[in-house]
């Protein structure tokens, strides 16, 4: 009797696990099955035509890559510097550290739509308008949604990911190495740059990839900070708007005049976005697993 109950219980937990895995399989399978028909080299390299019902999605891919590129050249270096400060300079027991660390942690859980509001209120209305008032009085140059401000907004959103990942790996570097280096007459900065950072490299990589994957997939922060549904030309300046894969999916599924007609293109766009984020996340997971094995050895 007891064995029956036990077995049923284990079987139920197994079933729950299988349900979750099945859900993933259904989503991925559905997208792959419907998405691959339309997929072609042309689809990836051509611009949309006839109100999104023909052509490709190149501008959206280009815009997403541009956004993510601009975002990471801000988020990664700054995130790494803050992580170095937290792991190597800040006193772990100080109140300042505890509060700022808590703020960073909290930020990782703040809804992304709030970052969109922040981007609008801070980058566009405050910084952008400020620049315009000083440099281009009477014109609207930086005080409007653009790929620059969308990237900055996304950078703030992904900063906590970078900071937390890198700080964690830096703290995992044994104290012995710091002591050995300092005992040889190295300065703190030399110790950080030559001993600690090389060992935390996998953390920097993981943090960067997680940030990029998040930046490529999030839509809410770019809704009002720079994404556009359709643009005749690729953005060439930082203050122009851009097309974005995720936003494109959202807009096509809600604003298209004929959903059935756009469906194949829509599916293929989802497929491209999924492959992109999936590859990025897989890389991050693999690096992290290897790192975990390496540090626990």
């Amino acid at each position: 009797m007891r064995r029956m109950v036990d077995r049923t219980f284990v079987a139920m937990t197994l079933a729950a696990t299988l349900v979750i895995l099945a859900m993933i399989a259904i989503i991925l399978g559905n997208v792959v099955i419907h998405g691959r028909d339309r997929l072609s080299w042309e689809f990836l390299t051509a611009a949309p035509e006839q109100g999104m019902m023909a052509g490709g999605i190149f501008p959206a891919i280009y815009g997403t890559v541009l956004l993510v590129f601009l975002m990471s050249i801000v988020a990664v270096p700054f995130g790494v510097l803050v992580a170095i400060y937290f792991a190597e300079y800040a006193r772990a027991e100080s109140r300042l550290y505890r509060w700022t660390r808590m703020a960073v942690n909290n930020l990782a859980g703040v809804p992304s739509i709030v970052f969109g509001l922040f981007g609008l209120g801070f980058f566009i209305q405050t910084i952008g308008h400020g620049i315009d008032q000083v440099l281009y009085p009477g014109y609207l140059v930086y005080g409007q949604p653009s790929v620059l401000w969308a990237a900055m907004t996304m950078a703030v959103l992904t900063l906590p990911v970078v900071i937390i990942t890198v700080e964690e790996t830096m703290r995992a570097v044994p104290q012995e190495y710091r002591e050995a280096s300092l005992a040889l007459g190295a300065t703190r900065l030399q110790t950080i740059l030559r001993v600690i950072l090389p060992q935390a490299w996998s953390g920097v990589m993981t943090g960067a990839i997680l940030a990029i994957s998040r930046g490529a997939g999030e839509v809410a922060p770019v809704l009002f900070t720079g994404a556009a549904y359709f643009l005749p030309q690729l953005p060439t300046r930082a203050n122009e708007q851009f097309m974005h894969l995720g936003y494109h999916i959202y807009a096509m599924s809600t604003q298209s005049p004929d959903v059935e007609a756009t469906k194949p293109i829509l599916y293929s766009t989802v497929f491209v976005l999924l492959v992109l984020t999936f590859l990025l996340n897989l890389t991050a997971i693999l690096i992290r697993n290897r790192m975990r094995r390496w540090t626990t050895r």
Binding site: L21, I24, G217, I249, Y250, S253, K263, L273, F278, N281
Partner: peptide, 24 residues
């Protein structure tokens, strides 16, 4: 295998999940 598989779900952009519910 299970852990990374579930983490894959975490990596699916929410717009894709929304799209899947909406369309399918």
């Amino acid at each position: 295998w299970i852990k990374p598989a579930v983490e894959v779900l975490a990596g699916i952009p929410s717009v894709v999940i929304g799209f899947f519910v909406l369309i399918v």
